[in-house]
Design a protein around this nucleic acid. Structure first.
Length: 375
RNA sequence: GCGGCGUUGGUGAAGUGGUUAACACGCUGGUUUGUGGCACCAGUAUGCAUGAGUUCGAUCCUCAUACGCCGCC
């Protein structure tokens, strides 16, 4: 089957939604945060560690798996789940985001047919099209495939964005036409940048194609926060109630809360694992940097009240030592904590939606989270 | 004892008679939002062994002293 979304309730004072996603691997509550595992691995974490962090859906990336090991290898190994030994749902990104950053000459390389770019591995000339992206995702056998879209940088002119939105709609249609994996859902992506009418247009036209879920794309590409939140508002109001809404690439704790309040169901982001590898951890009182000298002999866990494996077993002093000496365990332990932090955040948001207290929750969370910054 | 060479920041070091002493590491902060690149950005010697001299001006020239390395008796 494809995934099924059911809306359980909408919070009294906001658009925040409590829902369930039924997949072939079980049923999961939303709002949800999805850890990113670009190359068929959430960097440095085992599946047991992901399960212990209460991970539901995880991500993988079409571009990376296309290049290595190749979709046929994965298909011959029984599909992505079996290959990576993950018995939970997987969402694959279309590869568009990567390919656009690799396309050198935007005007020449991005054509109606697809995108020309060079492999980051050997510099080989490659060409990715909407059809190709969907075919690869079909072979990977993920549970949710994403349409191949253009994610323009910020800012671009209205004219450029208009053309881009129209092309993305044509690409969505082309991808949908070749999609033929009956076990795989296919999501459409709303674009339009910060232009309200283009968001509306992109949204309405994408919904007409009747996808299994919808994503808000083109955010967190350099715009300021109010603009980003407006982009969400401008698109989401035209999305159907009975389908999943996915805000792509967003993982700052405050942005997740703001997204949920605006009606977003699922999020993904590299932030928890990337900042972990650079020595930083999310905490209730803001982000901390374990490289800082103040943690040299700090025997406390990252957060006393956190229920993650890292906080139950290791001190800040030890993690700081691992990070400053470049030991890989440091990034691993921080990744475990950061992923659990964001998942726990969504668990609390679900509770707040149940109790219709999400506005209070936001206020308290932000107040505490920003205490350090204001000093 | 005599002669030669050397002495620059936490470390390895570059360098010049004249406004801010290169670079690297380390250290101290910061950044990171559909992860090509596992990194990027910023700060970090009011001082060039010590003392005296030459000079308009010395870390750079001269002399002495101290310390270190090498050679000779």
């Amino acid at each position: 089957m494809k995934i099924e979304y059911s809306l359980l309730k909408t919070e009294k004072n906001t658009k925040a939604r409590l829902g369930k996603i039924k997949t072939n691997y079980g049923t999961y509550d939303t709002p949800m945060f999805m850890p990113v595992g670009t190359r068929a691995t959430v960097k440095s974490l085992s599946k047991e560690e992901l399960k212990a962090a209460h991970a539901g859906i995880i991500l993988s990336n079409t571009y990376h798996l296309w290049l290595r090991p190749g979709p046929d290898v994965i298909k011959n190994c029984g599909g992505l789940h079996k290959f990576m030994s993950w018995d939970g749902p997987i969402l694959t990104d279309s590869g568009g985001f990567q390919v656009f950053s690799l396309a050198k000459n935007k005007e020449k390389d991005i054509t109606e047919e697809g995108v020309h770019f060079k492999s980051h591995i050997d510099g080989k000339e490659l060409f990715l099209t909407p059809e190709k992206s969907i075919e690869i995702q079909n072979k990977l056998d993920s549970d949710i495939a994403m349409s191949f879209d253009e994610c323009p940088p910020y800012p671009v002119t209205y004219d450029y964005m208009k053309k881009s939105v129209e092309r993305t709609l044509r690409w969505a249609k082309r991808g949908k036409a070749v999609h033929n994996n009956p076990n795989q859902a296919l999501f459409g992506i709303v674009q339009g940048g910060e232009f309200q009418d283009l968001r509306e247009y992109s949204c309405k036209e994408t919904v007409k194609m009747n996808f299994d879920g919808y994503s808000i794309g083109g955010t967190s590409v350099g715009e300021d926060k109010p603009t980003m939140y407006k982009m969400i508002d401008d698109g989401i109001r035209y999305l159907p109630e009975d389908k999943v809404r996915y805000l792509m690439g967003v993982g700052d704790p405050i942005d997740i809360i703001e997204g949920v309040i605006r009606g977003v169901d699922i999020f993904d982001c590299v932030l928890p694992t990337r900042i972990a590898r650079h020595g930083q951890a999310f905490t209730r009182t803001g982000k901390i940097n374990l490289n800082n000298a103040q943690y040299k002999e700090d025997l406390e866990p990252i957060e006393k009240e956190c229920d993650c494996y890292t906080c139950k077993n290791y001190s800040r002093a030890y993690i700081r030592h691992l990070i400053t000496t470049g030991e890989t365990l440091g990034g691993r332990l921080l990744s475990i904590h950061n992923i659990r932090f964001l998942i726990k955040l969504t668990e609390e948001l679900r509770e707040a939606i149940k109790n219709d207290t999400i506005l209070e929750y936001r206020q308290k969370f932000i107040e505490k989270y920003q205490t350090k910054k204001e000093k």
